[in-house]
């Protein structure tokens, strides 16, 4: 199992963030976390990281339904930033709307669409890929 350096969680739900972080820690999923509470904040920070050539997260868990910028807006803007480092993005959402699932498939960057809640099993599967 490959150890991930930085995992980024973009979600406005503190319970989810808390829970996910705990599960990741328990599973020894990654070294450190980056947590943003909406798409806009995540975009601004990540853009700064890219520009400053600092270390980017290896994986992003992206919620769709968020205030200010939602997950889609974030994706639309984020893919415009030129970046050579590979980032794996997972959409983690409560939405089971088939329209959302279809839309997620249209982004090359998005590796998978995971319906909440996240479980230990789900996390292990994610690492296995």
């Amino acid at each position: 199992m490959k150890k991930i350096d930085i995992a980024c969680i973009i979600d406005d739900d503190p319970i989810f963030v808390f829970g996910t972080k705990r599960i990741m820690q328990l599973a020894n999923f990654c070294e450190s976390f980056l947590v943003f509470h909406n798409g806009k904040e995540a975009y601004d920070k990540l853009k700064a990281i890219i520009i400053n050539k600092e270390k980017l997260p290896d994986i992003i868990l992206l919620d769709l339904n968020m205030p200010i910028w939602d997950g889609w807006q974030f994706l639309d803007e984020f893919i415009k930033i030129p970046n050579k480092n590979p980032i794996t993005i997972y959409i983690i959402t409560s939405s089971v709307d088939p329209a959302d699932v279809e839309k997620a498939k249209s982004y090359d960057l998005v590796s998978n669409y995971i319906v909440k809640p996240i479980t230990m099993e789900g996390l292990k599967n994610m690492l296995a890929e």
């Binding site: 989810f16 599960i23 409560s94 909440k116 809640p117 479980t119 230990m120």
Partner: peptide
């Protein structure tokens, strides 16, 4: 239903799991 209720129920399940 599809989002909010699911989020809450998901969180409860996750919390219980943890």
């Amino acid at each position: 239903v599809s989002h909010n209720l699911r989020s809450h129920s998901g969180n409860i399940a996750m919390m219980l799991d943890l």
